[in-house]
Design a protein around this nucleic acid. Structure first.
Length: 752
DNA sequence: AGCACGCCGACT
DNA sequence: GTCGGCGTGCTC
């Protein structure tokens, strides 16, 4: 007997469910429904059924429509999102609806487009490929693919040739194949499968350790230097898990989720997985998909049809009914942390999901997040003083050798910028090294984390600096477009000819950005072919790929760019990496700045000398003796991480304490102050176990016209902090001032 | 968050 | 005389 009342989650910032009358409709938990809400209709998800309501029964409205032909969300994913909404103190309905593909938040339920699937006929099976004319290359290839696997969809054939579809139709005409329409998954034909490379001893040991405990929850940290072959370990683990699922007993085949950072790296990893594992259905979930592709791929994951799901942070909330393994590539990457709405960390949510499912999670990185390193320390015989009291919660697996055996680690030199004369921001040593590479016809990469021409426009007469009107930041000079631009809010204005403060005409772009460096190099090394890679030069979708192709084809001598260059392709002929001006991060007030800089420099250093040629890294700095550079020179992540952990322990910073922020912003700063003051005194009154600090202003005091502030809370025990936050949020929601400011809780914040 | 209702300034 | 500013209040 169906119950008359439905409790429904809606996309509204109210931390409760809404009761509706089921009106005799057959509805399940997890089902998508359309309901009247205020003056409009909203999409909701049924969370529960009930016999009665706390709301006056005569005020309940009936649901408008139930999408009963769609697969409801499963209990596991609903419960994961419930947990996350609680943990990150975010309204559940909003968290839930945000986890769905946008199409499912709209009324019209979108249907995925079908495509042709070709099946081989007996006649086609008996055709000798050699009997076909040699010049009908594509036709032979398509028939070969059909003979190998029996059937192929259009999307799969596309991987063979642009004219493969035409050839397939031709095969139907010849009677060698038949066609029917199906819901298709993009795959690579098995005949394009790339061979399985041998594992080195470390890779093999990592695979063995994990597969021995493949059926239980365990978190593994795969710490492998750049080029040590982490991807191959991922592939072997996927093979292991997916094969097991295919072995008889399991009714549904196993599924694997691969989380990747939010960058262009995804296509490469995806392509590699596709060619190595063509027998499995692989779907990806990331921001450059169209909404219909996203829905399609999401539904393939939900139905179990896709065995490999590769996606960015949001995909941690995808329903995957037979999930058996989670892989997290570049686990230290900060793009796993959502920086607005629900401020979750996909890695942390993944750990919770794996624990609840009792499956392993493997986190790979050359420079693990300090939190992860802390959790992994103690195993593998790595005893340090910092490690002595540590939890050894994760299994640590280390890959120290580069998988390409000939490849050597680069030599790293720091050049003291205080002891030499700089030529337009470049040391003579770096210029000489660039010249040498040009002579040898080798390639160089210059890394500078500052785009634009120069970071400030300065009046030499009165020292006025062009400010952003909406942010507490300086406008960056972009000479190409003759504009001043704010890198925080996007505000643009023309470059003034006179100082607005004193009227003097002597306005100078001061400091160096990527554009200026490119210009300087063109003057110093007129024969060099230079390409710049930053967010300004990579506006078009394929611009980066084009430049990288040109680098591969030896059409570029010097690549200048920001951190966009730190990841991605290997350039076998690139033997020099220059690092310009990272000193600001060495003395940043953000306690995570050095951790991030180290990871970034390790990554760029890894670009140098990949194949048989030795690489060199030149770092220009005013602080060549800084501990960070010493650690970098010896490429010793472990000792540097342990040093940082010791520091964090001494000053009681994460991971030794649990932290949360209450952030607030408004056009009017006094409102922010008033709100945070209330929050501060409430928090102090609510808990003695949690330390609450006075309201302060962030680095960026004003952003996009909003005045900002926050209070920091920290605790030795997570439950105490969680309890306080729950009570605090509850109190604040009831306070009138809370409606006048934009505020949010940030649990385990990465940025302040 | 939307989207209403609701009371005070410059426009056809 | 209206159009519209954004203050406050509600949504099963």
């Amino acid at each position: 007997m169906p119950k008359p009342i439905l409790q429904i989650a809606l996309d509204v910032p109210l931390a409760r469910l809404f009761d509706y009358l089921s009106a005799g409709q057959q509805v399940q938990v997890g089902q998508r429904v359309l309901v009247p809400f205020g003056r409009r209709n909203q999409i909701g998800i049924v969370m529960d059924e009930a016999d009665s309501s706390e709301f006056a029964i005569e005020k309940l409205k009936p649901i408008t429509q139930a999408f009963s032909d769609e697969v409801p969300l499963d209990a596991e994913v609903l419960s994961l999102i419930r947990f996350s909404a609680d943990y990150y103190h975010y309204p559940f309905g909003q968290a839930l609806l945000a986890a769905l593909p946008a199409r499912l938040r709209q009324v019209a339920p979108a249907v995925a487009r079908k495509q042709y699937c070709y099946q081989i006929t007996d006649a086609g099976r008996q055709v000798d490929l050699e009997s076909l004319p040699k010049r009908q290359r594509v036709l032979r290839l398509v028939l070969q693919a059909l003979q190998a696997e029996g059937e192929q969809t259009e999307a799969v054939l596309d991987a063979l040739s642009g004219s493969a579809r035409k050839a397939a139709k031709e095969l139907v005409n010849l009677g060698y194949a038949t066609a029917e329409q199906v819901l298709a998954v993009k795959r690579v034909p098995a005949i394009l499968q790339t061979p399985q490379p041998a594992l080195n001893a470390e890779q093999a040991a990592a695979v063995t350790s994990i597969t021995q405990e493949i059926q239980v929850f365990k978190a593994w940290l795969l710490h492998g230097i750049t080029g040590s072959g982490k991807t191959e370990v991922y592939i072997r683990l996927m093979q292991h898990v997916l094969q097991q699922g295919a072995d008889g007993a399991a009714q549904q085949s196993a599924q694997v989720l691969v989380l990747v950072p939010e960058i262009n790296l995804t296509p490469q990893l995806e392509a590699r997985f596709r060619t190595r594992l063509p027998q499995y259905n692989l779907v990806s979930l990331h921001s450059s998909l169209s909404e219909s592709e996203r829905l399609h791929n999401w539904q393939l994951a939900q139905s179990g049809a896709a065995q490999i799901i590769i996606g960015t942070r949001l995909s941690i909330f995808t329903p995957i009914p037979n999930l058996k393994l989670i892989l997290i590539d570049e686990e230290h990457d900060s793009s796993y942390k959502q920086q607005d709405s629900m401020r979750y960390h996909a890695r942390d949510v993944a750990l919770v999901r794996a624990k609840r499912l009792n499956i392993p999670v493997v986190m790979g990185s050359a420079t693990p997040a300090l939190e992860s390193w802390y959790n992994a320390m103690g195993s593998n015989g790595q005893a340090t003083s910092a490690a002595s009291s540590q939890p050894n919660k994760y299994g640590l697996l280390t890959l120290k050798q580069r998988a390409v055996s000939a490849a050597q680690l680069p030599k790293i030199d720091c050049i003291d910028t205080t002891k030499v004369n700089l030529q337009h921001g470049l040391t003579p040593q770096l210029v000489a090294a660039l010249r040498l590479r040009l002579e040898r016809k080798e390639q160089s990469l210059l890394f500078i984390n500052r785009r634009g021409y120069s970071p400030v426009l300065l009046c030499t007469a009165c020292h006025w600096i062009a400010p952003c009107t909406r942010c507490s930041s300086r406008l960056v000079v972009h000479l190409g477009q003759k504009k001043l631009r704010c890198h925080h809010c996007g505000h643009e204005q023309r470059i003034p000819h006179q100082c607005p403060s004193c009227g003097d005409a002597d306005l100078h772009p001061t400091g160096h950005g990527t554009q200026r460096l490119e210009q300087t190099l063109a003057t110093l090394l007129p024969t060099a072919r230079i390409a710049r890679v930053d967010r300004d030069s990579i506006s078009r979708k394929h611009a980066l790929v084009e430049i990288l192709d040109r680098v591969h084809n030896q059409e570029i001598d010097i690549l200048v760019g920001t951190q966009m260059l730190a990841k991605g392709h290997d350039f076998p002929n690139l033997t020099l990496v220059g690092v310009i001006d990272t000193d600001s991060a060495l003395h940043s007030p953000d306690f995570r700045a050095s951790e991030r800089l180290f990871a970034q420099l390790m990554q760029v250093a890894g670009r140098a000398g990949r194949a048989d040629k030795a690489g060199q890294v030149i770092i220009q700095t005013a602080f060549p003796e800084h501990a960070l550079f010493n650690a970098l020179r010896s490429q010793d992540y472990a000792s540097y991480a342990n040093d940082l952990l010791q520091e964090r322990e001494q000053v009681q910073f994460p991971p030794y304490v649990f932290t949360a922020l209450l952030r607030a912003e408004a056009h009017d700063f006094p409102l922010v102050q008033q709100f945070l003051q209330l929050a501060f005194s409430s928090a102090r009154a609510l808990s003695q176990q949690v330390v609450t600090y006075d309201p302060v202003r962030p680095q960026m005091e004003r952003l996009k016209g909003m005045e900002r502030g926050y209070i920091l809370m920290h605790a030795q025990q997570r439950p105490a902090l969680q309890k306080l936050l729950t009570q605090l949020v509850h109190q604040l929601r009831a306070a009138p001032i809370a409606a006048k400011v934009r505020w949010a809780v940030d649990v385990n914040p990465l940025e302040f």
